[in-house]
């Protein structure tokens, strides 16, 4: 008897919530980016667990694309962090309010 898929779903829900906690509570941009990565990772785990439960290989394809997009997102996000640090000298989200009308 293998692990039922609901257990993986509950684990990824908990991990997603911890990621939301990081996005809401932390003010450092790098920690916020890492929390977003944690949330993406939790959703990928849900895909794989559901794919095995339903016997569908397409879930692996979705996770493959999701990983690629996450890599692109990290590259652009960290470049933005470097640019913000260069112009402000800090990387706190509360200091980045130039677009705040």
């Amino acid at each position: 008897m293998s692990v039922p898929p609901g257990h993986f779903m509950a684990l990824s829900a908990i991990l997603f919530s911890i990621g939301v906690l990081g996005v809401l509570l932390r003010r450092n941009v790098i920690i916020v980016l890492m929390s977003v990565e944690l949330m993406l990772n939790a959703v990928n785990l849900t895909w794989i667990a559901a794919g095995r439960a339903l016997g569908d290989i397409d879930s692996h394809i979705f996770v493959f694309f999701s990983l690629t997009v996450a890599a692109a997102e990290v590259a652009v996000g960290l470049a933005l962090v470097v640019a913000i640090y260069r112009s402000l000298g800090r990387t706190d989200v509360d200091d980045i309010s130039m677009l705040n009308g």
Partner: peptide, 10 residues
């Protein structure tokens, strides 16, 4: 979330 995804695929 835990309730929905755990019960969503019994």
């Amino acid at each position: 979330l835990t309730f929905v995804v755990k019960e969503g695929l019994p």
